[in-house]
Amino acid sequence: MDQDNRIGDTLLEVKNISLSFGGVKALTDISFDIKEGEIRAIIGPNGAGKSSMLNVINGFYHPQEGEVWFRGKKRESMKPYQVARQGVARTFQNIALFKGMSTLDNLMTGCITHMKTNIFLQAIWKGPAEREELEFRERVEHIIDFLGIQAIRKTPVGRLPYGMQKRVELGRALAAQPKLLLLDEPMAGMNLEEKEDMSRFILDVNDEFGTTITLIEHDIGVVMDLSDRIVVLDYGCKLADGTPDVVRNDQAVIDAYLGVSHDD
């Protein structure tokens, strides 16, 4: 991959983030940046604060200290839906799809921040509302094609197997055409083949749509292969930050998380 052309300026920067729940310190003084077009991974042992970090980025948690800068501007305290409207989409560790709705409807709901027609035009349907609906249907069909989920278009997602649900959830996040895509353990609980598929999708999303991706993942092999840079967290503190090679050879990271291979 052509590193230099793909990666651009800083898209999002967190500065000195500290977050605590009562006496429990979830994050302490975390700073790092995410550059446009890169795949950035956050790794660390269980309870290290990885998901809390994502929740801070998409506005679900409000840190006591620190700042989030998005696209060169300091972000004021925001509700999650406002952050979504700025172009941040995410998937969840334990799938958060709308189970009663079809795959197609889930993806169409992903586009919702871009849809504009008001309630009266919606009531009449013919005209602007229908035109908008068809325009977004076409866009969503493109994503359905990309993910290869044509056959389950009209199936309620509650009936789909786990791996497919993960794929639909990625699709819903993509439908929002995000500038920054947050993936919380996209490969948790998957078999090797499903992991390979998912890795391929992540690389393709990054390559074809130029979407910046931040992911949390426990499969170290996958993380090292996919990501451009990695942040390592442990007990809410930043342990290391850098390219996969730097992180792999960092003594603190090896002690806290990676462990030592006994073959050496």
């Binding site: 839906y81 409207r85 995410r90 709308f98 709901t109 919702i112 819903r172 929002a176």
Partner: peptide, 12 residues
Amino acid sequence: HDMDIAAEIIGI
């Protein structure tokens, strides 16, 4: 109806 937290996070 299906999941209000997820709805808020995707921008509703």
